[in-house]
Write a protein that binds this DNA or RNA. Structure first.
Lengths: 109, 109
DNA sequence: ATAATTCATTGCAATATTACGATTAATTTT
DNA sequence: AAAATTAATCGTAATATTGCAATGAATTAT
């Protein structure tokens, strides 16, 4: 196995899980924080900023891009990355809705 | 490899990543939604509700419990699970803070 | 006491993830 | 054109995840 049975879950559940999974790694969180901090849309600076190999950073960027969380445009020799505002906002709303739908009960455990 | 280099990241980054990882699976999202819906803190009903084997559900519950997102108390033969309000609130705040710290720039990509 | 139930744990197979060195592709500088 | 820079991709190794059948432990019912 090792394969998620996505067919038994709703599209919403699968989508939320997939986006959260893209977020669920310290390196990718660090990358996103760096992209938020420097609105200059840095690129290879990430390799220096975090302590990971270039290939590793590139792989994480690819995952974030695949999830739609970031976008990159070629700028001469380097690539300029930044957060994709629409996906960001969408995920922000979805997670907020998910968390806030919990109403603590008194009669519980 | 296959091993995250957590030592190069901050405690906050690692913690957030770990909690999000616990959430980042459709089955676990479905379990949490079910726990939110039925404030009766159901237990083995989850096996019927979702279409996964008992062993698989048990494993997902264990992960959620390890992350501190849920808690379970033995109730005779069965086990009563429910959401851990403190961790839930903590994660809700952290993710909200993470998402809202993004301010879209005009001069970008 | 024996049988039934509920759930955790173990063991296993298939697949996914993380990380990196080496290479490649594309552009820029010299 | 040749060298340098930047980033993607390939290949590989180590580890993690997902899922389930089978078994085990604990409680309840007969």
């Amino acid at each position: 196995m090792g394969l998620t049975k996505s067919e038994i879950f709703s599209t919403e559940q699968n989508q939320l899980a997939q986006l959260l999974k893209a977020l669920a790694h310290p390196a990718r969180i660090a990358i996103l924080q760096e992209l938020m901090k420097s609105n200059t849309c840095i690129c290879g600076d990430l390799v220096e900023e975090l302590g990971l190999a270039q290939a590793t950073i590139s792989q994480h960027l690819k995952e974030l891009k695949n999830a739609g969380l970031i976008q990159g445009t070629i700028e001469g020799v380097s690539v300029c990355y930044c957060i994709n505002p629409s996906t960001w906002e969408m995920l922000e709303k979805e997670t907020s809705g998910f968390f806030s739908s919990f109403k603590p009960a008194i009669n519980c455990c």
